[in-house]
């Protein structure tokens, strides 16, 4: 019984941590992007190469983090794939001539810097990272 209780407690803690972790990612965009919010499905389409525009007609270019927990979390929550499957999907588009691989940057600061200076750029960073000069999109 004690064992069962421990398992439930652990599962509960894990789910709290997961919810907490999901709140760590924010989606940012260049100020030229008209939208202030984006649907989860639009975000998935843009970051998988299936779309190049948001619903309001804003043309966007996805920017990726190379690795890390924020990157993994973004893929898990908004794309529904792990990093390997996600990049394989992009490579498939590249090798069939349908797309160019999105730019991948090392740090949140580099993402913010790039997004701030490139029209249409859209990326994701840790909520706690500084993000002056870009707009934060609410994901619905």
């Amino acid at each position: 019984m004690k064992k069962l209780l421990s398992i439930f407690l652990l599962l509960g803690a894990a789910s709290i941590l997961t919810v907490h972790a999901q709140a760590q990612v924010i989606v940012i965009a260049n100020n030229s992007v008209k939208a202030t919010e984006v649907s989860k499905s639009d975000l998935r389409d843009v970051f998988t190469g299936a779309a190049t525009e948001l619903k309001d007609g804003s043309r966007v270019v996805p920017i990726l983090l190379k690795a890390g927990t924020v990157h993994e979390e973004f893929l898990q929550v908004y794309i529904g794939k792990n990093d390997t499957a996600y990049r394989a999907g992009w490579r498939s588009l590249v090798f069939s001539g349908q797309a160019t691989m999105p730019k991948s940057l090392d740090t949140d600061a580099a993402i913010v810097e790039f997004v701030a200076h490139n029209a249409g750029a859209i990326g994701y960073i840790n909520k706690a990272s500084a993000h002056e000069g870009v707009k934060v999109l609410t994901v619905k």
């Binding site: 394989a88 999907g89 490579r91 498939s92 090798f95 069939s96 001539g97 349908q98």
Partner: peptide, 9 residues
């Protein structure tokens, strides 16, 4: 057809 060589995918 267009991705048939993409063994990794």
């Amino acid at each position: 057809t267009d991705t048939q060589d993409m063994d990794f995918d």
